[in-house]
Design a protein around this nucleic acid. Structure first.
Lengths: 346, 346
DNA sequence: TTGTAAGCGTTATCAG
DNA sequence: CTGATAACGCTTACAA
């Protein structure tokens, strides 16, 4: 039964929420006994317990979790801080982490670590982080690249910290679980080389540490094969960014025969540009992240799955004690689809 | 500077977080003065203020927001409870709401109201809701259809409540802002009729109150035009659901010439089925929600934009006092794209 | 088994 | 302007 404060316009009869004291008084016992009746019912005599519990029920009492956490370590819970609530990659990581936490009987509180910027960006939401930290979680998982990660980390109180799907940045000695982007880029390049490609470009590098890291990984993977690694077109993670970058590549004097994108969304932008240039079956395109976008409707995009679920699981395991905290690289897997599955005619 | 508890393996030297008392002692003043120095620095003598603030800085003190909220109404903040963190519609609503709150100088805490079910669904996460409620927010915005909305509402304490992008369900007298789905369906049907369609089907109706509401709206809109409103194929909001439902419709004896879907994702599934049947330019498809999916890459889907940003703004305005709380229907707009823009040859 | 009293970290009140 | 003192709602020794 929802007992809102009545229809708008009713007098401000703020009905104070019942406290443990109200219940104690009504049931004719002490506060402590009420407290006990909720935390360890079996330690309270049947008759009084009954009286307390029904009395609490009648008055709509429920222990205040905040007041509880102010004392000892309260309820044992884990805070999950997500960098970007629109990113489907993080959603996969988070869901996997929650499943592990749930199995371990630990509850999770999921909040955003950033707030949208007036000019389209995102800035760390310190107030939110501090609130979560002050709730005394036993652990915190930061999912994704949060701006000013070190400042955020300094606000989470005494919680154990694990960073998932992001570089720890200037943080030192913090447990981290992320995809092995170098290995992922290697598998992409290898796949493309097998299909006869040599002039391979990369679209990305901007938008944060992960973008930069993937661009570096691309360069490294190309060098390992003695291929020209200089075909880089800067782009963020958006469709528009990918499209613009690809446009530049394809308008050049010697366009590439394959384009690797920094993520799936940018890759879809790349596909648009490729199609517009009438090169749909002549320029291979690959994405990254293995999100649902890679096989959405008519899209059929080769993509690297960084093992998002695995990343979330490992991060959570470090917090529940099933895994040792440390720096873990999760091996990626390549899903080849029609955007790059054909072999280039020589 | 992040001061984690050292490398894993170090002795459990739990460094208690400094409290207001530590600072007071160190600065040689009373707790109250330290408190005041943080809340209203101008009311404290310059010299002492300086001493207090630096002393706090040195010891890494920061007022505990939870302890603060335990007392009076603490910081004035608004909690945002999102039903489904994967739904891009909600992301748009939330961002718009946050912008309004930020302009009003009120901070927002965004958390999930559900937790993933073992079998793919989502259940209300009461623990999370209770924690948020016990933080004493001045207002709560519930975005999207949360299971057991009335139970959730009963847990948010004394906060003013606004429901956005969802039906209030069994909640009575609760402020609600949502899209006008009847009007939206009308505009879809009108558009299709103008293009020469008569046999129009609907894919949807499942997955929650919104799906059911849209199916009803479809039926009503068809009746208003004296068209056969019985072409309903049950589907949830997923691509697979939409595809299966469309498959059934197209395999029937008299397939429709146009299919309206309950959302964009299901519409994309419908498009797949349509294409597979070789009917790409003979069966029109429309979506709903105006998400980025409707114009992603090769997809070019006619879709109803429910005015998500507007919904978020209105909801927030009701909480900051710029708008009167009540039941608001935001007018939708139809974005016609190539999936239905052509006219049917008679 | 039950009650008393002392915290937890902060703010509010009310004297100086 | 400053500083005791009493809340806030609950937990937790420690007694009874």
């Amino acid at each position: 039964m929802a007992q809102r404060s009545g229809p708008p316009g009713s007098p401000e009869a703020a009905p104070r929420r019942p406290t443990i004291r109200d219940v104690a008084e009504h049931a004719g016992v002490s506060k402590s006994l009420v407290s006990l009746a909720f935390r360890a019912p079996e330690q309270v005599g049947a008759e009084r317990r009954e009286r307390i519990l029904t009395s609490a029920d009648v008055r709509g009492f429920r222990p205040n979790r905040v007041a509880r956490s102010l004392n000892g370590p309260g309820e044992d819970f884990v805070g999950i801080l997500v960098a970007d609530s629109r990113n489907p990659v993080f959603a996969d990581v988070v869901d996997a982490a929650r499943a592990v936490l749930q199995d371990a009987g630990r509850l999770a509180l999921l909040t955003t670590a950033t707030t949208p910027d007036p000019d389209g960006g995102a800035v760390a939401d310190l107030a939110a982080v501090e609130m979560l930290g002050d709730l005394r979680p036993s652990g915190i998982i930061i999912v994704g690249s949060v701006p000013d990660m070190d400042v955020v980390a300094s606000r989470v109180g005494t919680a154990r910290l694990v960073v998932a799907s992001a570089y720890p940045g200037s943080l030192r000695g913090v447990a981290t679980v992320r995809g092995d982007d170098l290995e992922g880029m290697r598998s992409v390049v290898e796949h493309l080389v097998e299909r006869g490609h040599r002039r391979i470009a990369h679209v990305g590098g901007e938008g944060g540490p992960v973008g930069a890291g993937r661009a570096e990984a691309f360069v490294a993977a190309m060098r390992e094969r003695f291929l020209d690694e200089t075909l880089l077109a800067p782009s963020d993670f958006t469709q528009e960014g990918g499209e613009r970058a690809a446009e530049r590549l394809l308008s050049g004097s010697r366009p590439p025969t394959a384009i690797t994108a920094t993520n799936d969304l940018a890759a879809i932008g790349v596909m648009r540009a490729v199609r517009r240039h009438g090169l749909a079956d002549r320029v291979a395109v690959t994405g990254y992240d293995g999100t649902f976008l890679s096989h959405l409707g008519p899209i059929d995009l080769t993509s690297v799955d960084p093992g998002n679920a695995r990343i979330g699981q490992e991060a959570a395991r470090m917090l529940v004690g099933t895994a040792a905290p440390g720096e873990v690289l999760v091996p990626p897997t390549l899903s080849v689809r029609s955007s790059s599955a054909w072999s280039r005619s020589p």
